[in-house]
């Protein structure tokens, strides 16, 4: 465990707790893409199946359990408890356009052709694009609430910190996981445009809105 990975994990945790807290506090999930949240739920569940087969550390097990629980709670709030506030008209990204190709790719490009490994690979690939419905929704409505922007910033920071972590691990531990690295870089690139808007607008106290 190095500092980049720890701060990355904490940033990830902060992001998902922030989103859950915002929905709970405002009693509304307006502006939040339920489809991105369903895909993140799928990401955690398919990746953390090793909770049952492989013990790494208390930290690792606890974080995995929290991620799965928070993802399920968020999906529950969006699709059940605060369903009336869910902005489905603007959440029109087709999940199958991501899930089907990502599933196919996981079958073709993986470390080992076993069920658990293919599901792990699927989750890595899916995570890299799971935010697209959320970004698509923001581009459709032309704006995002400030807390939603903070959520995206924390989530993007987690990905960027993981890249630094991989550079560190490559040099100091000889660790190298090409699948995770390529998918992680793709994922981080998707946030670049958002990072730019966040720094130029939200950090200066303005709401995130896109130029018309």
């Amino acid at each position: 465990m190095n500092i980049f990975r720890l701060v990355g994990d904490l940033s990830h945790l902060l992001a998902i707790l922030l989103l859950l807290w915002k929905i709970w506090k405002t009693r509304s999930c307006a502006g939040v893409s339920g489809k991105s949240q369903i895909m993140f739920g799928l990401v955690y569940i398919t990746r953390y199946l090793d909770l049952f087969t492989n013990f790494i550390s208390i930290y690792n097990t606890t974080m995995k359990a929290i991620f799965i629980a928070v993802a399920i709670a968020t999906i529950y709030l969006i699709y059940f408890k605060f369903k009336a506030t869910y902005d489905s008209n603007h959440d029109t990204f087709r999940m199958e356009f991501l899930i089907v190709p990502v599933g196919g790719l996981a079958f073709l490009v993986n470390h080992d052709f076993t069920a658990l490994e293919i599901l792990w690979t699927f989750s890595i690939y899916l995570e890299s694009v799971a935010i697209l419905p959320q970004l698509f929704m923001i581009s459709k409505t032309g704006e995002a609430e400030t807390i939603t922007s903070h959520y995206l910033f924390a989530l993007g920071s987690y990905r960027a910190l993981y890249i630094v972590n991989w550079v560190y691990r490559y040099y100091f531990e000889g660790f190298f996981d090409l699948i995770a690295i390529v998918a992680g870089c793709v994922q981080t690139i998707l946030y670049c445009d958002f990072f730019y808007l966040y720094v130029t607008k939200v950090m200066h106290g303005k709401k995130l809105s896109l130029p018309a």
Binding site: H12, D50, H111, D112
Partner: peptide, 10 residues
């Protein structure tokens, strides 16, 4: 390869 198979990252 062992390191990769253990997937110790989150």
């Amino acid at each position: 390869a062992d390191l990769i198979e253990s997937h110790d990252e989150l």
